[in-house]
Amino acid sequence: MTQAIQAAPLGHYRFKHVVRSEVVKILTLPSTAVMLGLTVVAGLLVTGLVTNAALHHGSGYYIGFDPTQEALTGLIVAGLTGGVFGALLITGEYSSGTIRSTLAATPRRPVLLTAKIAITAAVMVVFCELLSFVAFFLGQAILSGGGAPSASLGSPGAFRAVFMTGLFIALLALMSFGFGLIVRSTAAALAAFVGVVFVLPLVMRGISRGDVRYLPTNILVNSVMSTVHQGPGGIVQPLSAGLGLLLMAIYAAIALAAGAVLFARRDA
């Protein structure tokens, strides 16, 4: 009596089954709405405040002014809350013990993890792109309404900056997911994420100014969000947007790969 008493469908569980269940998992957690709602509110609030503060200055203020970058500033906050969201998607399973139910239901770990990462990536890319564009339009509306220089998606580099910023925040969330997979605890994952993204730049600035440009935060602000070639006569040029985004993708991939190797080997 080893087969099920009730007739089972042909074949076996697949990627699509895991994806369906992971979607339901995300949708049925109150923390999803809370974290994503918080991300929208905080992101747009910061964009609103920053662009508002850029109004009504003398004309000298607007030399080298980058309306696109100004409007996207709120996405830095989204990077923080999005990172928390990404980590929670996996550490929440460990802290609650759900991971054992998950592995009992779908024990093939590569299939399970691929589906989980795919869902996290899809949710974050769609969400962050939407937020990035909304922040851009909100910021431009405030700037132009206040008579300050503003940009449109047709302005040089603007579309590229808005689009890549969305991708970048999604990659930050995936890196954080990778941290969560490695350490399996919410507190430790968030410490690692905040450490790398927000504390490391401060520490490194004191040690080696040149290398700061390889850090996620600096790539985001100076390479990805920016449409104006920065630093007149600056010693250290920021990376190009494309190279910066690629580097961030590599960071996320390293964190996910390390987590995946551990996930495949470790006892649950």
């Binding site: 569980y13 929440g92 609650s96 013990g97 139910s101």
Partner: peptide, 18 residues
């Protein structure tokens, strides 16, 4: 197992849910 939950039901700890 091809359909694990259709073949085995396991209760290993009372709080394996979120």
């Amino acid at each position: 197992l091809v359909w694990p939950l259709r073949e085995v039901g396991g209760l290993l700890d009372a709080k394996a849910f979120h």
